[in-house]
Amino acid sequence: MASGDKKVSTYVFLHLNTTCLPDDDECQITEICMFASRRNTLEQSGGHTEIPPLPRVTNKLVLCLKPDADIQEDATDVSELTNESLSHQRRFSSHTVSAMQAFLKHLEEPVCFIAHNGNTFDFAVLKAELNRIGQPAVFVPMFCADSLYAVRELDPPAEEVSFELLSSSLKRKSGDSTKTSLKRTKTAPATSTKQTPGHTSLLKKSYSSPAVPERQKRSYALREYYKDKFGMLPRNSHTAEGYCKALVTVVQTTPKFCEWANKNKQKMSTIQPA
């Protein structure tokens, strides 16, 4: 079996705080966290509907870094890091890379990075920093997967989700006969001539309930998605470690995430630097 076909043994949740926000160019890293957990541990804790405890056995590396660029105000608002607070930290360098490599070698292989919006930000910014210090080949053989795509696919705000809520509501109110009527009128349920006035009234009432619009307006940005699922913002998510922990919680409560990540993982070599 080729190494690319092997199941990932360890997931390394990666998050970067930077000098600017993702929409801006040439961000430099101000804080990096790698938070590692074995795949089997995450699979065993999956399927929760409430906030589960984090896995007991984890490994982590957290580094704060002094950037060459000024930290933009909006980035400080997110991370609470300033040029002054980082003035006595080391810059991103070959020593930073060596520390990261040593950490990764401590973990059971195969290893895969997981980052939320990683393809266009975390992985891309990391590769740009590696290019900047003349070490572009580092981490190229590593696997990576973007959890943003995972939750969009595994927990979609699709019309069929809203339709299931609607159908369930109508079934409770009107009995099993409503289900057949709904199937015939899925595209325009409120205007169908085959429905009785009672059914039309129920459909209008169901569509005006708050549950359906909430699903349709779902944000997949990690903090907002977390709040949508659990009714609160994640604790300390302004820190790279706190953000990683929030991402672990999302993974723990997303059925089939590990299966998705193993199927959709790619090599870091496919990521374009920011």
Rank of each mutant, 00 (worst) to 15 (best):
S3L: 15
K6A: 15
V8D: 13
V8K: 07
Y11Q: 07
Y11S: 07
Y11V: 08
F13T: 05
F13H: 08
L16Q: 00
L16H: 00
T19D: 02
T19I: 01
L21E: 09
D23T: 11
C27E: 00
I29P: 00
T30F: 03
I32P: 02
M34R: 00
A36F: 10
S37G: 14
S45I: 06
S45M: 14
G47Q: 14
H48N: 12
I51V: 15
P52Q: 11
V57T: 11
N59I: 03
K60Y: 09
L61R: 03
L63D: 06
L63M: 14
L65S: 01
D68Y: 14
A69D: 05
A69Q: 06
I71V: 11
Q72G: 10
T76R: 10
T76K: 07
S79C: 05
N83I: 12
E84R: 13
E84F: 12
L86S: 13
Q89T: 11
F92Q: 00
S94E: 11
T96L: 04
T96P: 04
S98I: 06
A99H: 06
A102R: 12
F103N: 01
F103W: 02
H106Y: 02
E108C: 11
E108A: 10
A115N: 01
H116K: 02
V125D: 00
L130C: 12
N131F: 14
N131K: 15
R132I: 10
I133W: 03
V140Q: 13
F143H: 04
D146W: 00
L148E: 03
Y149S: 01
V151A: 04
L154P: 03
P157L: 06
E160D: 03
V161P: 00
S167Q: 07
S167F: 04
S168C: 07
S168R: 05
L170G: 15
L170E: 10
R172V: 08
G175M: 13
K179S: 15
S181A: 15
L182M: 13
K183I: 12
A188V: 09
A190M: 09
K194V: 10
P197C: 11
P197D: 11
L202G: 04
L203G: 10
Y207E: 13
S208P: 12
S208N: 14
P210D: 06
A211T: 08
V212W: 07
E214Q: 12
R215H: 11
R215E: 11
Q216C: 07
S219E: 05
L222D: 01
L222C: 04
R223T: 09
Y226E: 04
K227E: 15
K229P: 06
K229W: 09
G231T: 15
G231S: 14
R235P: 08
S237W: 02
S237K: 02
S237V: 04
H238M: 01
T239N: 08
A240W: 00
C244R: 06
K245G: 06
A246R: 01
A246L: 01
P255Y: 07
K256V: 08
K256C: 11
F257S: 01
W260L: 00
N264S: 04
Q266K: 13
T270N: 07
A274F: 02
